[in-house]
Design a protein around this nucleic acid. Structure first.
Length: 226
DNA sequence: AACTTGTGCAACCGCCTATGG
DNA sequence: GCCATAGGCGGTTGCACAAGT
């Protein structure tokens, strides 16, 4: 039913060459972003529009930071992930110069492991029952779980001192998250009924967020750290 | 030196949503 | 309201390189 986004047999795949990059940069400098479907032909590229968009947004955009993530960026990613789950584009939206792909990769390759090492389940940001090294999950669903804010109750393991720096905001578990939720609920106009449950509030908050990604990063961050 | 395993990252795929006719 | 299309998103893959044996 749906047509492919491009004629696959006429397009290049795989890594981009310098010439291709240059063509794309030149074209976008001249004509700006947009109309990705027709862009490849107009720019003289044998790529599909999606590929061009991805290359531009993830790699060629001039405002990209690149390089290692700073500690405060790490913290912010962890906090936002606890709040938003795998909504990488939303998370990346709060990190100037970072792309969703970059954040996602960094999470999967660094932060997930880091949390696991500290004995924190990266999916729900709660302390795990056992000592970390005894239960490194093979996969834990490959971060497929939607959200990461499951409401399964988990006793707080007071003996586990390892959950510190990066996860410090989550030391109090659900309580800390609830505070964050409250802040966010206040920050966005919402039709939420006064006596909605925390879960409902969370849901509403999330849907507001996904509908209004243009909320200024600064105000969001401020609220987040209040 | 050769091989294996692990890691990081760019890119692709398929699905979902928004939009316009 | 329905349909087609473009754009966007998250999950996954594949490759290059590093580290370990």
């Amino acid at each position: 039913m749906r047509k492919p986004c491009c004629d696959k047999q006429d397009t290049n795949k795989g890594a981009w060459s310098k010439q291709e990059d240059q063509k794309l940069i030149n074209y976008i400098r001249k004509h700006g972003e947009g109309c990705w479907r027709t862009l490849p032909q107009a720019a003289g590229l044998l790529r599909c529009g999606k590929s061009c968009r991805l290359r531009w947004t993830n790699y060629l955009r001039p405002d990209l930071k690149r390089g290692n993530f700073a500690e405060d960026e790490e913290d912010l990613i962890i906090k936002l992930h606890a709040l938003l789950g795998n909504r990488w584009s939303l998370i990346a939206g709060r990190l100037p110069g970072r792309t969703d792909n970059e954040v996602k990769n960094y999470w999967n390759s660094h932060l997930r492991r880091k949390l696991i090492k500290m004995g924190i389940d990266p999916n729900n940001h709660r302390l795990t029952h056992n000592l970390p090294r005894l239960q490194i999950p093979q996969d834990s669903g490959s971060a497929t779980s939607s959200g990461g804010l499951k409401s399964d109750t988990e006793p707080h393991n007071d003996n586990n001192q390892q959950a510190s720096d990066a996860a410090s905001c989550l030391e109090d578990g659900p309580i800390a998250l609830a505070d964050l939720n409250l802040d966010l609920t206040i920050s966005f106009p919402s039709s939420t009924a006064p006596n909605t449950t925390p879960e409902e509030k969370q849901k509403n908050t999330e849907s507001n967020l996904s509908k209004e990604p243009e909320v200024p990063a600064a105000s969001f961050t401020l609220l987040l750290f209040q």
